[in-house]
């Protein structure tokens, strides 16, 4: 099978990079709309935690590389489709400044039976973590002092993604 990714000038309906929040209910409805073949809908939502590495987090700012982000996500989705028998896919990633509890990322996958959607969803998320060009900067408070830090990549994320290869 070809690994060639063809990028339409039109926006890829499976991928959205946005500053705005998203509605889990609306996204599930779109995955299910006029979809009579898929019995399984698996969704993952990632949110901003209030603590990281023992520090109190106040905000999280997401930066990305426009153009490459969409291309890398399209590649990841294509790999998932080659590997599992899945129906619809949607990936949403937010950018800009986010607060505690805000939704950051959404991955939704449908399939005829649950196994393919479960596996493909986890695969997409694991690959997004290590391949898609996003960077997080956190504002933290430690002993009354506020500071900003770019997060360091975690080897646990790379190890987890490597399990799929």
């Amino acid at each position: 099978m070809s690994n060639q990714v063809t990028l339409n000038k039109d926006k890829d309906p499976e991928i959205s990079i946005q500053a705005n929040d998203f509605s889990l209910a609306d996204e599930v409805a779109l995955l299910e709309k006029e979809n009579l073949t898929d019995g399984a809908v698996v969704t993952f939502t990632g949110r901003v935690r209030n603590r990281n590495n023992g520090n109190v987090v106040t905000t999280l700012t997401l930066e990305h590389y426009p153009g490459m982000t969409e291309k890398s996500l399209a590649k990841i989705i294509l790999q998932a489709k080659e590997r599992w028998d899945i129906g619809r896919v949607k990936v949403i990633h937010r950018i800009g400044e986010l607060s505690i509890g805000d939704q950051i990322v959404f991955v939704g996958v449908t399939s005829e039976h649950r196994q393919d959607a479960f596996a493909a969803n986890e695969f997409i998320m694991d690959y997004l973590k290590v391949k898609a060009p996003f960077w997080k900067k956190e504002k933290i408070t430690n002993a009354g002092q506020t500071s900003e830090n770019w997060l360091a990549a975690k080897t646990t994320d790379t190890d987890k993604a490597d399990l799929w290869s």
């Binding site: 990632g46 997401l62 990305h64 590389y65 490459m68 990633h93 950051i104 990322v105 998320m125 997004l128 973590k129 290590v130 391949k131 898609a132 060009p133 996003f134 960077w135 997080k136 770019w150 997060l151 360091a152 990549a153």
Partner: peptide
């Protein structure tokens, strides 16, 4: 050509 640190999205 782009240079950047290891990615930390998701």
């Amino acid at each position: 050509v782009a240079f950047f640190p290891p990615v930390t999205g998701g």
